[in-house]
Amino acid sequence: MSRWLLPPLTLLAGLLLVMLPLPSAAEPFRPDWVAMVALYWAFALPQRFGLVLAWMAGLLLDVSQGTLMGQHALGLALITAIALHMHQRVRLAPIVQQALFVMSLLLIKQALVLWISGMIARAPEDLWLYFASPLVAVIFWPLVFVILRDLRRRYNVS
């Protein structure tokens, strides 16, 4: 039962973390929790965790963020696809390298989302602030990794 439920539930928890109110000065620095959770499952369970689930999580992210429907969904599907292709190399890498790889994927997603925002003339003024959140995500990746790994082992999801 929980074997199937764990990835979707953790994605929803990530969505809740994205929606939690922060002081407005800290908002641009909030890491993209949903994308980090999706990337963890793509690395850990490439056979089971599918693109469709990541895409649906992205769609919910779009609705909750008030962005164009499909914007985050496309970005999330893209980086999950890359992660699925490269999971064998990344899984064996030390956690610092993993974190840097996650950061570059998040930067790609951020760039894609920004590009789409620009196309519909909704690009923010502070372009550089837009790339702050992937940098913060590097710090939190080990935490996400350890928590999700423990959850996965505890519920014996493999």
């Binding site: 895409w55 499909g70 914007q71 969904a73 496309l74 599907a77 893209l78």
Partner: peptide, 29 residues
């Protein structure tokens, strides 16, 4: 479990989802 995933299937699925996303974005906009 298979050692190597079918990479082609992932790519195909991604392309389908990407097309769906773009269609959604255009329709939404």
């Amino acid at each position: 479990q298979p050692l190597f995933q079918n990479a082609g299937a992932t790519t195909l699925r991604f392309l389908l989802l990407a097309a769906l996303s773009i269609a959604l974005m255009v329709a939404d906009h």
